[in-house]
Design a protein around this nucleic acid. Structure first.
Lengths: 173, 173
DNA sequence: CGCTTCCGTTCCGTAAACGGAACAGTCGGG
DNA sequence: CCCGACTGTTCCGTTTACGGAACGGAAGCG
């Protein structure tokens, strides 16, 4: 993650709107020096600065972050998972991932904290996953669910890469 | 956007993973004072700091920030759905939504094209949904699936708002 | 040509974010 | 008990991001 990438993004967004550095700085309530340095990537902006600028540009924070950065949490050799959303309610915290499982490799994951459950909906391919000693199998459209406080495994069945959504549920303790 | 919100999220994500402040600080290469202040919302972290921490937690920045308003969202009488992702493979096109269903109202949706299926994973609340003449029910953690080429309905059971993920599968014709 | 009014960059004193060290509190063993 | 290893917070000197002011350049106009 390069601050220069963020800077280029800000400058592009500003120029799309046809407003000058000076006016954006004034509207966002930051110094021109700050904005200049931000766009050049020569500063390391604070959350407050970034928020002031993005709010004025009318874009979500994510617009500043290059795609590759938003990219995968690599669990390991077979599985790549991208976090789509974190969701908290009174009982638990949920993390929704989009998951891909490459064929030909079995991946083992260590146990999570007690009470954590995983829910998988398979989009494409055939997935074998679950507790390492008793994995379950689901074809495209299928759904798997297990308690993940024991070591567990993921594997694609056959030659096709598996695409799925993975929901991790962390109970509030 | 409140820095305290970001702080609480970081702390929640860290505790979900069961690692201490000290070790996360060491792994992320930031000072313990920095991380402590960040989690308390008493500091105004720099991009560099945020990136070091989120990278170590394995989450994109998105996870730290309140819902950006730029995503396509569909509102109905009871259902609010946000499109998270669209992807296509050889057999079908998929749309993944995050869905909220307000209590007290039943929402009817017209039939989709033949062969379209819906897959719902419930995060919170109890959902009754499916073909209008034979809806299915699922509690938090449950999963529903139906062929949606007939009119279908969505409703929250009880007083609690339902949160769920909705996968629409459109077969290639 | 001056003069004005913008543009974006650079300079600079101040405020604050940074990491290291010192701190009190807690847990588990000998 | 005492000890060591750990937790998270606070203190503090150094580094640096901050905004205001000064700067050089480029137009537009008389």
């Amino acid at each position: 993650m390069d601050p220069a990438v963020v800077g280029r993004r800000v400058r592009a967004l500003r120029e799309e709107r046809g407003i000058s550095l000076s006016t954006l700085a004034r509207l966002a309530g930051v110094g021109k020096a700050t904005l200049s340095g931000l766009e050049h990537g020569t500063r390391n902006p604070t959350l407050e600065t970034l928020w002031a600028v993005t709010a004025q540009l009318g874009v979500p924070f994510t617009a500043l972050l290059a795609e590759p950065t938003a990219e995968p949490t690599v669990h390991g050799t077979a599985v790549t998972a991208t976090l789509l959303e974190v969701f908290t309610d009174t009982d638990a915290t949920y993390e929704l991932y989009r998951m891909r499982v490459a064929p030909g490799v079995v991946q083992l994951s260590p146990a999570h904290a007690p009470g954590v459950t995983e829910h998988v909906t398979v989009f494409a391919g055939v997935l074998r996953a679950g507790p390492a000693d008793a994995p379950l199998t689901a074809p495209a459209g299928g759904h798997l669910r297990w308690v993940s406080d024991v070591p567990h495994s993921y594997a694609a069945v056959g030659e096709e890469e598996v695409a799925a959504s993975l929901l991790l549920r962390y109970p509030r303790h």
